[in-house]
């Protein structure tokens, strides 16, 4: 494969080490995701999945290794700079502004592009219709599923090229869970790269172009979603048989 035909990956993480204090939680994570792909991170509790997303989004000091966005090094850039470069992040917890209304939450998503607010609001409302009638209600009063819509909507307002989602279906009823998976597929179909952590590993890997099984801060398995689902070792240790 010649250099000319190899596209620059959307996101590339090479041998990433990092943690919250002096101790490393990530001990050499590698990831490559091309434009328009869905990447899914699975693994046991405490494996460092959320920590890896935080490292990608500049919320964690990377002690060793590097992270590239479209070929440009981004590790240790502050989150607001990464938003400017087209990254959006929906954290696992506390992912809305509870005292702000739904509309204000969404507006904050387009904080750096105020001229786009009106157009993007229309798009997000069309994408998550239940939010329309709740738009003047404080986000803290919504149900879990609607709150997740606000959280994703807020990130979409900035028109990201890469969206990081940390357990978007955690704690949701099966109905909402399917709804969120459908939305993720739709967002991806619109040309947005997705890197998502999921507990519902089977369902998530089924829509994944790339799957990363993390354990103890390292890649245990890395392959296409379909290949990981078919791998008996992965199934036995990480997918509940």
């Amino acid at each position: 494969m010649s250099l000319a035909t190899s596209p620059t990956p959307l996101l590339e993480a090479r041998d990433v080490h990092g943690g919250y204090g002096s101790m490393n939680i990530l001990n050499g994570v590698n990831m490559t995701l091309n434009a328009n792909q869905v990447g899914v991170i699975v693994g046991p509790n405490g494996a460092g999945k959320s920590t890896m997303l935080k490292a990608v989004f500049g919320l964690l000091h990377v002690n060793q290794g590097e992270i590239l966005l479209n070929g440009q090094p981004i590790h240790n850039l502050p989150p607001n700079k990464l938003v400017e470069r087209g990254m959006g992040f929906v954290p696992q917890e506390k992912n809305v502004f509870p005292s702000l209304t739904v509309k204000e939450n969404l507006e904050m998503g387009a904080y750096l592009k105020p001229q786009n607010v009106k157009r993007m609001l229309e798009q997000v409302y069309a994408f998550f219709p239940p939010l329309v009638e709740k738009r003047h209600q404080p986000a803290g009063e919504l149900s879990g599923g609607q709150r997740q819509m606000v959280a994703m909507g807020r990130a979409l307002m900035a028109e990201p090229s890469l969206l990081l989602l940390d357990e978007p279906t955690a704690g949701l009823s099966p109905l909402y869970m399917n709804e969120i998976f459908d939305r993720v597929k739709q967002i991806n179909a619109a040309g947005v790269g997705i890197l998502m952590v999921e507990q519902n590993a089977k369902q998530a890997l089924a829509i994944a172009d790339k799957g990363f099984v993390l354990a103890a801060g390292q890649n245990r398995f890395t392959d296409t979603g379909a290949a990981l689902l078919a791998d008996p070792d992965v199934a036995k240790s990480f997918l509940g048989g």
Binding site: F57, L59, K94, F97, P98, Y111, R154
Partner: peptide, 10 residues
């Protein structure tokens, strides 16, 4: 409300 999320919003 949420300083980290504010930062994450740019």
């Amino acid at each position: 409300d949420n300083p980290e999320l504010a930062q994450a919003s740019g």
